[in-house]
Amino acid sequence: MTHSISLPSYLEQSPEVRERFDRLKQRDVLLEIKNLTKTFESNDGTITALDNVSFRARRREFISVIGPSGCGKSTFIRILAGLEYPSSGEVRLDDEEVSGPCPNRGMVFQGYTLFPWLTVKRNVMFGMNMAGHGGTETESQAMQWIDLVGLSKFANAYPNQLSGGMKQRVAIARALANQPRILLMDEPFGALDAQTRAQMQSYLLQIWKNVDITILFITHDLEEAIYLADRILVLKAHPGEVQEVIEVPVPRPRSPEQFILPEFLATKRRLEELIHPKNEYESQELPIIRMTPIGDDVE
């Protein structure tokens, strides 16, 4: 079925890409995950969602996390956010152990989770209000973040008056307004249509370029993972283990034209190998009976 097309190895990096990674490696470690394990008790016994996951992210790195369903991606990011606790191991942010949710780790969920009773502006101000700030100063700060995501005209709208993509931009502005150290994104564009999703990806890259923020981005879309990330953390299912960490050999700045670059395709092929091992779906041949006349062939 798959005709072999010759591609370079995903490990081959052009001099400029290699130089960029060398510079990245000199940055401080921002997030350190050490031997993270998470188990759940269920009726069928103990389920290991994450098994001994270790990983480091440096400041202003863009990390994508990818893996087959059931690999514990969501559990992973929820532990980083402090919404769940690890069974063992630890998460350190700026060399301090993380416990419980805290505004220094912003989170964007797949469901938009905007507060429907607050206007866009009040949603963005929420974090600052919780920290005890208020008044016109806070309001103008919130407006800056709303400008950044290009929604100044909708500052006084309620979330139910916005489209899905706009809601997610507000959610990003709301998380960034707290000036977190890291932005955790759990399949944030998963519910959007293809066109809006492409637009959101380019918005996100622009925001990331202009804001001092490290991003950890969960997705199940291979192209999205490559297009956005510096490095891709590939998890394995049952139990969730680190399978590989891929340095994306595609140069920056990124643009949608790069989707057909050989290094892009090589990375995609590698991810496919890791996530959908060949034998898994090629062996699946359906027991179909021919129901068309002989000679009326489409292939």
């Binding site: 956010a81 402090g82 919404l83 949710p101 805290c102 505004p103 780790r105 912003g106 989170m107 969920f109 469901g111 989770t113 507060f115 929420f126 974090g127 209000n129 919780m130 920290a131 959610a171 709301r174 998380a175 707290n178 955790l184």
Partner: peptide
């Protein structure tokens, strides 16, 4: 929706504020 509560927690809302706000 429990994710609204979780979102508020990641934005720094705690205990009584979580309830009242």
């Amino acid at each position: 929706d429990v994710s609204l509560i979780e979102a508020a927690q990641t934005l720094g809302a705690k205990k009584t504020k979580l309830l009242t706000k």
